[in-house]
């Protein structure tokens, strides 16, 4: 009985530092999505475009981003780029690396979605004299969104967990806060709490994903 009370006391003692770490994780999460999703749509449109040079340049970008470890990219941006006089703050380095990495994954998802739309949709829009952008906005993107939602949701959940990699450049995120407490106090509890934190986050995201997919289920 005494033990349980002590555990609770200890948990509430370390909670402020865990919450501080959670705040870093959450703000990186939100800002990465705000940057990476629009960038991913633009790159995806470019990857599906009829201009070969654009397709090829973006192809190399996607290849590099998906072909090297995210951890390497983080280290490269924060520890590597200062050698050529490009210096980022820790937080900005993490944000930059995550945005360009996730935008590449999103771009491939959007490209696949765009290419799965029947070309006849563009043609029927054309004989109705809609412009290209009217067609994209009113007909193509709404259909692409519905197609890509499950894959986007998957990546978004991956992002929450991938963000724990920022420990390598010394950012105090949720995992690092727990790790510090465990090392200092020789107890498993902080890591268990961190695990519960991630589970709660992904549960909320899964719930949100289901809501959005339902919103798009009014047609087939």
């Amino acid at each position: 009985m005494n033990g349980i009370v002590a555990q609770w006391q200890y948990a509430s003692q370390i909670m402020p530092s865990l919450l501080l770490g959670l705040k870093t994780t959450l703000s990186l999460f939100v800002l990465t999505l705000i940057g990476a999703i629009p960038l991913g749509i633009v790159v995806g449109l470019g990857r599906a475009s009829r201009f070969k040079v654009v397709r090829q340049i973006l192809g190399v970008y996607v290849w590099i981003m998906r072909g090297t470890p995210l951890l390497l990219q983080l280290i490269f941006v924060f520890y590597g780029l200062p050698i050529v006089h490009i210096v980022f703050q820790r937080y900005n380095a993490a944000l930059f690396a995550f945005i360009i990495n996730y935008a590449a994954y999103f771009a491939e998802i959007f490209r696949g979605g765009l290419q799965s739309i029947d070309p006849g949709q563009y043609e029927s829009a054309k004989v109705l004299r809609l412009t290209y952008w009217q067609t994209v906005r009113k007909i193509i993107l709404p259909q692409v969104m519905k197609i890509v939602l499950p894959s986007i949701g998957n990546e978004v959940i991956n992002l929450v967990k991938d963000l724990s990699l920022v420990y390598v450049i010394g950012l105090g995120d949720l995992l690092r806060a727990g790790n510090v407490a465990t090392a200092r106090d020789v107890t498993l509890l902080p890591l268990v709490l961190v695990g519960i934190g991630y589970l709660l986050l992904t549960a909320i995201l899964t719930f949100g994903q289901r809501k959005v997919e339902k919103h798009y289920s009014y047609y087939k």
Binding site: D118, G120, Q121, E123, S124, A125, K138, I139, P142, Q143, K146, Y219, K220
Partner: peptide
């Protein structure tokens, strides 16, 4: 069109 190409959304 032969396959109508209505906008499904």
């Amino acid at each position: 069109f032969q396959d109508f190409q209505l906008f499904p959304n």
